[in-house]
Lab assay of single mutants.
Amino acid sequence: MPSETPQAEVGPTGCPHRSGPHSAKGSLEKGSPEDKEAKEPLWIRPDAPSRCTWQLGRPASESPHHHTAPAKSPKILPDILKKIGDTPMVRINKIGKKFGLKCELLAKCEFFNAGGSVKDRISLRMIEDAERDGTLKPGDTIIEPTSGNTGIGLALAAAVRGYRCIIVMPEKMSSEKVDVLRALGAEIVRTPTNARFDSPESHVGVAWRLKNEIPNSHILDQYRNASNPLAHYDTTADEILQQCDGKLDMLVASVGTGGTITGIARKLKEKCPGCRIIGVDPEGSILAEPEELNQTEQTTYEVEGIGYDFIPTVLDRTVVDKWFKSNDEEAFTFARMLIAQEGLLCGGSAGSTVAVAVKAAQELQEGQRCVVILPDSVRNYMTKFLSDRWMLQKGFLKEEDLTEKKPWWWHLRVQELGLSAPLTVLPTITCGHTIEILREKGFDQAPVVDEAGVILGMVTLGNMLSSLLAGKVQPSDQVGKVIYKQFKQIRLTDTLGRLSHILEMDHFALVV
């Protein structure tokens, strides 16, 4: 994948999101292997301009796509893939009243899908469409860049269908997702969380590099694949309309690839034109409109599966009536509230959605109805927002919020430890010299600072030695090549209790 991002070429006709291997024109390309080798690009942008032909009021008969309808489940399912879809609609009884809503608040519980998330729908649909058009064949390999849930859905379907599955996901995604993927037989590649989507090191860039190296491999490409919004247009939206008897006044959905909100909203605009569509985008993402909503100094966020630093091709923002931004604290607070007060075992993005819903639905009156999409299960986040310690460490809970008995030293300040200034190293000294210094002084790690004293990161003896043994660096290389740029900081005025929580999850903390 090139470091400079080429513009994806656009073909003359058809839909841009065809499933299957992508040609340089962004659509299915038939021909000899030699032709494909000559024409197939190194990668295709996940934010390529959409060429979708959908228009409100256009006859369904003019759609270029294969459409399906929700099917009634048999008493005995032939395999677990038949437990994807037909998820329950559940009334939220307490939270709406707590925040003064007059309307009825309903939750579409997508964590009841077989793999635990709304992404099971698009995973199965992308595979079925690729099999139907002859792209996927027995023994082929599926590769997908994902925040985890699409990966789980694909790995689940691949396990049943017999495909090899490789999932490329950023490091910030939970260990629970990784464990589930491994249990399903998927191979996992992790990428830096802070890598831009168009960087060769991003999950998108690495996935395309693997595709170019592995024979008979395919990126189904949830960011561009029409099967993504079509899955929701054909099934999720129809289920909502049936469950609500066609009567709903507002739908609120958090947005990642945009397939969920695009597919549902398009069908609702056709069948229930008075329904307002509300999009939820986390602070630090750029999906919301108008652009002024996205202006923030924050560039990272903890909530998973929603928000991006690019506009995915499948996201149709014209069908969203209003956007709201959400933050991590309210997302996790509301997710825990949904679990504790409503018994809905949902993930953090569901918290984002409901946090926005109780604001947006203030305009609705008694007798009206708001539906929220709860995308995934708490299963993926047992060591994250479900953990009091994690919430404390991230600053989303305060010590006084917890009532468990603490040891005698818990409320003492870090400054009472009488710490001395640490050994520091410059980023320009060599790895070999740094190892000598650390061994001589008896230290395992040291902060790396520039000549102005600005902290650049941390270097550890173990990481340097393993990097040297693996051949990633040489003793003569500058130590700046092996620094940890993500590390926890703590102030002298913070409590030892807070430091204790940090050290339970990290090997060190830097006192500043």
Rank of each mutant, 00 (worst) to 15 (best):
G31S: 14
A8P: 02
P46L: 02
P64M: 11
I92N: 07
W43G: 10
P229N: 05
G134Q: 06
Y223G: 00
V168L: 07
P145G: 12
N113T: 06
P145V: 02
V189N: 07
K177V: 00
P41C: 12
I152N: 05
L230W: 04
K211N: 15
A195W: 05
D86A: 11
T236K: 07
I166H: 06
S63Q: 03
G14K: 09
P192L: 02
A130Q: 02
V180L: 10
E110C: 01
D249N: 03
S147I: 00
N149M: 00
I152R: 00
S61V: 03
S227R: 08
T235G: 11
M169L: 14
C52N: 03
S23L: 01
T68K: 10
I264A: 03
A69L: 02
M250K: 07
I167W: 07
S174R: 00
Y233S: 01
S73F: 14
I80W: 02
E213Y: 03
V204K: 07
R51F: 07
G162Q: 06
M250Q: 01
L81H: 09
D221S: 00
R91M: 06
D35Q: 10
H65W: 03
L268W: 00
L230M: 15
C272I: 07
D79V: 13
S27P: 04
S217Y: 04
S202E: 06
G14L: 12
L101I: 04
L210F: 07
D133N: 13
P16I: 12
K94A: 10
D129N: 13
G20E: 14
A207I: 01
A195G: 03
W208A: 12
E187G: 02
A183V: 06
A69N: 10
E213C: 08
L251D: 01
P16T: 05
Q55A: 06
H66R: 11
D120P: 05
S32T: 06
L124E: 11
G96Q: 04
D120V: 01
P229L: 07
V255I: 06
K177I: 00
M250F: 05
V160R: 14
R190N: 08
A71E: 10
S3M: 11
N216T: 06
G115V: 06
I76L: 13
P200L: 14
S19M: 08
S27K: 14
G14A: 03
G151T: 01
L77F: 15
M169N: 02
